[in-house]
Design a protein around this nucleic acid. Structure first.
Lengths: 112, 112
DNA sequence: CCTTGAACCCTAGCGAGCCTAGGCCTAGCC
DNA sequence: GGCTAGGCCTAGGCTCGCTAGGGTTCAAGG
């Protein structure tokens, strides 16, 4: 999954894995890779800025923990974050459905 | 559908509507809007550059026609365009499935 | 007649956002 | 000592959709 097919949906993906439980940044990358079945193999330079932005926007909160000398920053989804995630899931569904209709060639959704 | 959720998938969408039959640029916009159920309402400044690029890449071919004084450029999908579309459909399916797995929370696809 | 709006075409440049490419630290193994 | 894996970070590049502007003809309305 190269070339940024992901564009515009990354926030949702990060929020989704963190909604299942707090993780530190590096673990978010591994979790995304695992859940997607190796489809999403994102570089650190992609994830860290997203985490920082989401925290700045109040959708994530972070705490520093000390694990055997190594400092880690663990992120948790805030209440606002869960709300945003729910909204983004809806948007994804709408987008995905719309793409499906265009690809399917049907001018109107088959299921009304 | 604002904010470029579409990013990275627009080529596929344009190829898809043109694969159903030749259209001119303006009609591509209307067809995308119609098929998506008003989800994709793209400005001309988005579509025209894409059409030009796809033609430059050999995925589309165009002819100028004269319709009652108004010149039109009608686009057709080339053989290479159909091949690219097929590939992009596969990529979309893979992407969409991967997103589904991440959102679903399953580390492995439920349907093997 | 003149304006408005729809149907068509086009392009320069902005801006959001992902990624490349670098940098830093500790722990553990050879 | 050197190397890898686990962890953190950021400046800047590049891609690409979109904004904002430009043009034309035709039909309708004032």
């Amino acid at each position: 999954m190269r070339g940024s097919t992901i564009k515009g949906h990354l926030d949702m993906l990060v929020l989704a894995v963190l909604a299942a439980g707090p993780l530190h940044g590096y673990a978010v990358i591994e979790e995304l890779r695992a859940r997607s079945g190796d489809s999403f193999d994102l570089p650190e330079g992609t994830i860290y800025p997203v985490l920082h932005r989401l925290e700045r926007e109040g959708l994530l909160a972070s705490v520093w923990s000390e694990a055997v000398g190594r400092p880690r920053r663990t992120y948790t989804v805030t209440r606002a974050g869960r709300k945003a995630l729910a909204e983004q899931r809806r948007a994804w569904q709408a987008f995905s459905d719309a793409v499906g209709r265009v690809l399917g060639g049907a001018p109107w959704p088959a299921t009304i």
